[in-house]
Simulated assay, not measured.
Amino acid sequence: MTQGSYRQFCPVAMAAEVLGARWTIVLLRELVAGSTRFNDLRRGVPRMSPALLSQRLKDLELAGIVRRDPAPGEPGAHEYRLTEAGNELGPIVDAFGIWGQRWVASELSLQHLDAQLLMWDMRRGLNTTPMPARRSVIQFQYPDAPAAHRHWWLIVEPDMPVDLCSVDPGFDVDLFVVSDLREMTAIWMGHETVAGALTSGRMTLTGDRSLAT
Score class of each variant (00 low, 15 high):
94 D>V: 05
66 V>L: 01
78 H>F: 13
108 L>C: 08
82 L>K: 00
64 G>P: 02
120 W>N: 13
65 I>M: 02
81 R>K: 09
123 R>D: 03
108 L>A: 13
111 Q>R: 13
107 E>G: 08
100 G>C: 09
73 G>N: 01
70 P>T: 03
111 Q>F: 07
72 P>S: 10
82 L>D: 04
110 L>C: 04
121 D>C: 04
68 R>C: 12
102 R>Q: 15
67 R>E: 14
123 R>S: 07
126 L>W: 02
64 G>W: 00
81 R>M: 08
108 L>W: 07
67 R>W: 10
81 R>E: 10
102 R>M: 09
102 R>N: 12
97 G>W: 03
108 L>H: 08
86 G>R: 00
126 L>P: 03
97 G>R: 00
91 P>M: 08
125 G>D: 07
88 E>D: 15
63 A>D: 00
70 P>D: 08
93 V>M: 05
110 L>M: 10
98 I>M: 13
90 G>S: 14
75 P>R: 10
117 L>F: 06
71 A>G: 01
98 I>H: 11
110 L>D: 09
105 A>G: 12
103 W>E: 15
94 D>G: 03
96 F>M: 12
110 L>N: 07
67 R>Q: 14
79 E>C: 10
75 P>Q: 13
74 E>P: 01
74 E>I: 06
95 A>M: 06
68 R>Y: 09
97 G>E: 11
109 S>Q: 11
62 L>T: 15
76 G>Q: 05
72 P>I: 07
81 R>Y: 05
103 W>I: 14
90 G>C: 11
110 L>H: 04
117 L>W: 06
116 Q>A: 15
89 L>D: 07
115 A>Q: 04
121 D>H: 06
89 L>T: 06
74 E>K: 06
97 G>T: 00
85 A>G: 10
105 A>H: 12
118 L>V: 03
95 A>E: 05
63 A>E: 00
115 A>S: 08
121 D>Q: 12
93 V>I: 14
81 R>F: 04
107 E>Y: 01
76 G>M: 01
109 S>H: 04
110 L>G: 05
72 P>D: 12
119 M>P: 04
77 A>Q: 14
64 G>S: 04
74 E>R: 08
104 V>W: 07
95 A>T: 02
95 A>C: 07
88 E>G: 06
102 R>A: 15
93 V>E: 02
75 P>L: 12
89 L>G: 00
105 A>L: 11
105 A>E: 12
62 L>W: 09
105 A>P: 07
93 V>Y: 05
105 A>Y: 05
99 W>V: 13
77 A>Y: 12
69 D>T: 08
102 R>G: 08
97 G>N: 09
114 D>A: 01
89 L>A: 01
68 R>V: 13
105 A>F: 08
76 G>H: 00
112 H>R: 15
83 T>D: 00
94 D>M: 09
82 L>M: 06
118 L>Y: 00
124 R>I: 09
82 L>V: 02
